[in-house]
Design a protein around this nucleic acid. Structure first.
Lengths: 235, 235
DNA sequence: AGCGGCAGATCAGTATACGGAATATAGCGA
DNA sequence: TCGCTATATTCCGTATACTGATCTGCCGCT
């Protein structure tokens, strides 16, 4: 997943992207190109270009005072899940059909790590293991356009996912759905994978919506009359 | 569809994007940032950033000697259509359900223009009318993420589409499928729209594949030992 | 005549610099 | 003490300059 490539823009982009995947950047922090440039020992331009790319892809938004990670509205979550529902069950089914044994091993390793992290209450480890699991089955999707699109849509949720896993009950239900998908993969049953993934999608949407609702409510309580500027840059 | 916005990057980006949509740029021409900057009366940076954005989105590829429009392989076409099949029938169905009367008017206007252009053998006009038609129903898709994704996947085909419309038989079959979808929209029957769009997708895939196959064969004949460099930039 | 190497040209990548817009802050008056 | 205005700051957008890699074409060698 790490693409060091050779040019600075890609390096910074990959670095930021992986931080976003790990929810390592809070929506409240401001990402400023000069800062990123300084910490990486490069000039503004590569840092800026990486940031703009993330903005174009919808992960960040540009404000007048630095860039910030985009916060999903409830409508965003519903909309994004509508797309995911159309793509992921079908893609996972084709992955189950075409899966090789080494991918099965990766899947097993990821699933073990997920359960291990759940037991040790390691939230960020759980997040990482979760990403591992999805990357494992995505590898078996032969259509690169399909895989890339799915990967992108999944990544939008990383900032919210953290909140999902903090709640123990939700996390356990989430992992339970995941393990059901896992066993369907082991059975190499495309239809079972498809059905369980579909169920999983609906459950996940519910979980994200409720977490986000709570987040928004808490935010409204702590800073009642707070305004945010979003500025131009029509996505 | 035109977003003038206010900053130069967006301006150049929209300009190039609309040119790509009209197949106004041949894959053989090299897009160089300095040239674009000069013609638009701006500096390299905005032009360059617009080009990089198009590269990141997959419309262009970077070479050591300027940027060029990406040519789709047969595998690309199959892969892209697999995604389109998952999204467009469903989205069109929801559009048929939620469509307002003014969107119906737009759809009718676009359909009339399509037939008019077909009769007068105006290929580029046909292309434009076709884009009009799809934009009309996409407006009725309430989920912006869905609409944006579909729009993006459609745009990959503009370079090939030109070839599709050049062949009279294929063009007529294409338009026939379109008019069947149109009448299903008029009937406000989501399921009929969904089914006809599904059929349309398969027919379109066939058409694109055969056109592209012919293109590739012709290219192989005219310049047999021609080599192309694609360079780094791991998408 | 064909082949290999050298020099110039081209163009992407990166760095630095300047201007302007929006925001934050300090100073002033009530 | 509070509100308003002027100044300072921050940071984006754009411009210009430099560097290095790659390609092309020329020239000499065989």
């Amino acid at each position: 997943m790490v693409k060091p490539s050779d040019n600075l823009v890609d390096t910074v982009y990959s670095d930021l992207r992986s931080k976003l995947q790990r929810s390592a950047i809070s929506p409240s922090v401001r990402l400023v190109d000069t800062e990123i440039a300084a910490t990486n020992g490069i000039s503004r331009m590569p840092a800026r270009e990486a940031l703009l790319r993330l903005v174009a892809e919808g992960y960040l938004i540009g404000t007048t005072r630095g860039f910030a990670v985009r916060e999903l509205s409830l409508e965003d979550i519903s909309g994004l899940f509508e797309v995911r529902r159309q793509l992921e069950p079908r893609a996972a089914a084709s992955a189950a059909r075409d899966m090789t044994s080494d991918i099965e091993e990766e899947l097993t390793a990821a699933m073990n790590r997920v359960e291990q992290m759940l037991n040790s209450n390691d939230i960020s480890g759980l997040l990482a293991a979760n990403v591992e699991f999805r990357n494992a089955w995505l590898k078996a999707v032969s259509n690169p356009h399909m895989a890339a699109t799915i990967s992108r849509f999944m990544d939008y949720f990383q900032s919210v996912r953290l909140g999902t896993f903090t709640d123990p009950g939700t996390a356990e239900r989430y992992i339970d759905g995941l393990s059901r998908i896992y066993s369907a993969f082991l059975a190499r049953d495309p239809l079972m994978v498809q059905d369980r993934m579909t169920l999983f999608m609906f459950a996940a949407e519910e979980a994200y919506l409720s977490v986000r609702r709570r987040q928004l409510q808490e935010a409204a309580e702590t800073r009642p009359g707070r305004r945010r500027n979003t500025r131009r840059r029509t996505a």
